Amino acid sequence: MSTENERRALLETLAERLPERGLQGRMLGGAEPVLWIWHPRTSRQTIVLATQSGGGWLFLWSPDGQENADDPEVAADTLEKLLSQAA
């Protein structure tokens, strides 16, 4: 699988876990996709990147967010906590 295809597959897997946590997401970009995630109630949002690191992949987002892409459930839970907080 190419790097671009693997990146897209990881982000799509994360995106599938968002609705059950009250979050919404949309894939953006072409060859190097990113995932735009927002919380409809708080209007908080972030962009998630998938990048190679060592022998695996990481999800990265602002501010200072990072989770191993091997466990999208943990990443989705962390993003829910971040975006559920009132601004």
Rank of each mutant, 00 (worst) to 15 (best):
S43L: 15
G55K: 10
E67L: 02
R26C: 13
F59H: 08
L23R: 08
A87R: 13
E4K: 09
Q66H: 01
S53E: 12
L28T: 09
A87P: 15
V48M: 04
T51C: 07
I37S: 11
P19N: 09
Q24C: 12
T51V: 15
E20G: 08
G30A: 14
E73P: 00
V48A: 07
T46M: 07
R26D: 13
R7E: 02
W36R: 15
S62T: 12
M1P: 04
W61K: 05
E32D: 15
Q24I: 07
R21D: 01
P40K: 10
L79Q: 06
A15V: 03
T42W: 00
G25P: 01
A9F: 05
L60G: 00
V34Q: 14
A50Y: 01
R21I: 10
P72F: 03
P72L: 03
P19L: 09
M1A: 14
W61N: 06
W36A: 15
Q24D: 12
L23V: 08
G55Y: 00
Q24T: 12
S62E: 14
V74A: 10
T78D: 00
L82P: 01
P72N: 03
Q85T: 13
L23E: 04
I37R: 04
R26P: 00
T3I: 11
G65A: 02
V34K: 14
V48I: 07
G29P: 12
P40Y: 10
A9H: 13
D71L: 08
A9D: 13
L10E: 06
S62F: 02
L35N: 10
P63C: 04
Q66N: 01
G29Q: 10
A31P: 14
G29N: 12
R7T: 12
V48H: 05
V74M: 09
R7M: 08
P33L: 11
A87T: 11
E12T: 11
E6S: 10
R8H: 09
A15T: 07
L10A: 05
H39P: 10
W38L: 12
G54Q: 04
L58N: 12
S53V: 02
A31E: 15
L14Q: 05
D71T: 10
R26Q: 15
E6F: 01
M27S: 12
E6N: 05
P63R: 03
W36M: 13
E16L: 13
S62D: 13
E67T: 05
P19F: 09
A76P: 04
T51A: 13
P40R: 09
G54H: 05
R41G: 00
T3L: 11
R21Y: 00
E4P: 12
V34H: 11
T42R: 08
A31L: 13
N5R: 15
A9S: 14
Q52F: 01
E6V: 09
L28W: 14
T3D: 14
L10W: 02
G22R: 07
E73I: 06
D77L: 05
L82H: 07
V34I: 14
K81A: 12
S84R: 10
A75Y: 08
E73D: 15
A86V: 10
W57A: 03
L14P: 00
Q66M: 06
R17T: 03
L60W: 04
Q52V: 11
P40G: 06
Q45H: 14
G30P: 07
D71S: 09
E20W: 00
A86Q: 10
E73S: 11
M27K: 04
Q85R: 14
